[in-house]
């Protein structure tokens, strides 16, 4: 691992409630459409990698944390009892608003 990564601080930690971006970029992104604008819970840090969107556009991209984020099917699709865990770059995520943090997945 590159030494710079050790000094980098991850914005989120397991247990944090996060909301995904609702942007629809023109370029290749690895925030799947069905997970846009949804609240989920960070379950694990899955390493550090340059943002896929940057690399798809020929840019080197800043290394950043990638997280396993777990969503309740009901939050993604309006119904269902299963969960879907998606791997998302830090730039796709914002802290969930206070009133959203109380909800259970």
């Amino acid at each position: 691992m590159h030494p710079a990564i050790w000094l980098m601080t991850d914005r989120f930690a397991p247990g944090d409630r996060v909301r995904t971006s609702s942007r629809d970029p023109e370029w290749h992104t690895r925030l799947p459409r069905y997970t846009r604008g949804v609240v989920g819970e960070v379950v694990e840090v899955a390493g550090h990698h340059p943002l896929a969107d940057d690399r798809a556009r020929g840019r080197s991209g800043r290394e950043q944390a990638v997280y396993h984020v777990r969503f309740a099917a009901a939050d993604l699709f309006g119904d269902g009892t299963h969960s879907v865990t998606v791997e998302l770059w830090e730039d796709y995520l914002e802290p969930a608003a206070d009133h959203e943090r109380e909800m259970t997945a």
Binding site: R30, L31, G47, V66, T81, S83, V84, E87, L88
Partner: peptide, 12 residues
Amino acid sequence: TRISVWDASAES
């Protein structure tokens, strides 16, 4: 039985 789906959307 709870079902957990894992979407391999990044590097893992």
